Simulated scan of single mutants.
Amino acid sequence: MVDVKLLGLWYSPASHKVEWALKLKGVKYEFIEENLQNKSPLLLESNPIHKKIPILIHNGKPICESMIILEYIDEIFEGPFILPKDPYDRALARFWAKFLDDKVGAVVNTFFHKGEEQEKSKEEVYEMLKILDNELKGKKFFVGDKFGYADMAANFVGYWLGVFQEASGVVLVTSEKFSNFCAWRDEYINCSQVKEYLPPRNDLLAFVEARSQASASKA
């Protein structure tokens, strides 16, 4: 009997972070695709405060917020460690994970908003990219020599950002401006620990293009 359920969306980077962790640990789980326009009673009951995905349900108990879920999975299930065991490295991983998680909204706003709000978001994203470009110089992973917590948090900038750029025509990242980031990104999305856990790019691109067109028609 399956005692682990994941409520999520196939195109959500937050959902994929959790799936990543479960697969890394070898945990069998049931994935339940949600519809955010018609949220299920299970979603609303499991996350009554924020009413959003992903939600992990383990033995009937819900855990919310993707980065919190990752730490729960790391603590409760056997298998490769997601967070580093060294306290300093663990603190660094949490720092970069929070930094990356906090910037998702600005990136999304850059592609789906116009005018002043878009320009403000662009400035924030450029500052983020400058910081990452400096941090990632010559690095394979964010912390230490093993793939882990911060690298899972980086899936949005490592993969989804490029898809959003292609779908919208709004270009934020070029190798001329951010050479270290681009070198890291190319290595990141092609390494075996990442590639097998990402949604098919063509499917994701088609979805984001449709969403971009719908957003443009409402502007």
Rank of each mutant, 00 (worst) to 15 (best):
I32E: 02
E33G: 05
E33L: 06
E33N: 09
E33H: 04
L36A: 02
Q37N: 15
N38P: 01
K39D: 07
K39E: 09
S40E: 00
S40W: 06
P41R: 05
P41N: 03
L42C: 02
L43E: 03
L44N: 06
S46W: 00
N47I: 01
P48N: 05
I49K: 11
I49P: 11
H50E: 02
K51Y: 00
K51V: 04
K52M: 08
K52C: 11
I53M: 09
P54M: 01
I55A: 09
I55K: 11
I55D: 05
L56V: 01
L56D: 03
I57A: 10
I57M: 08
H58W: 05
H58Y: 04
H58V: 03
H58I: 07
N59D: 14
N59R: 12
G60T: 07
I63N: 00
C64V: 13
E65Y: 00
S66K: 10
S66R: 11
M67G: 02
I68D: 10
I68V: 15
I69F: 01
I69L: 00
E71C: 00
Y72Q: 04
Y72D: 07
I73D: 08
I73M: 13
I73N: 14
D74L: 15
E75L: 08
E75T: 09
I76Y: 04
F77E: 09
F77H: 11
E78Q: 12
G79T: 00
P80D: 12
F81I: 07
L83K: 05
P84F: 03
P84Q: 09
K85E: 06
K85C: 10
D86C: 04
D86P: 03
P87D: 14
P87Q: 12
P87C: 13
Y88S: 13
Y88C: 12
D89Q: 14
D89N: 04
R90P: 04
A91S: 09
L92E: 07
L92N: 05
L92P: 00
R94K: 09
R94Y: 11
F95C: 07
F95I: 05
F95R: 03
W96V: 07
A97P: 10
A97D: 08
A97V: 14
F99P: 01
F99N: 00
L100N: 14
L100K: 11
L100A: 12
L100F: 10
D101M: 08
D102F: 03
D102S: 05
D102I: 06
D102P: 05
K103W: 12
K103C: 10
K103H: 12
V104H: 12
A106M: 10
A106L: 13
A106T: 12
A106K: 14
V107G: 11
V107P: 09
V107I: 13
V108W: 14
T110P: 04
T110F: 11
F111P: 06
F111E: 01
F111W: 06
F112N: 07
H113K: 15
K114R: 14
K114C: 15
G115H: 02
G115D: 04
E116Q: 09
E117W: 07
E117N: 10
Q118F: 11
Q118Y: 08
E119K: 10
E119S: 09
E119W: 03
S121M: 14
E124M: 13
E124V: 08
E124F: 08
V125D: 01
V125G: 00
V125W: 05
Y126N: 15
Y126S: 13
E127P: 01
L129M: 08
L129A: 12
L129T: 09
I131D: 11
I131M: 10
L132S: 07
L132F: 13
D133Q: 03
N134L: 14
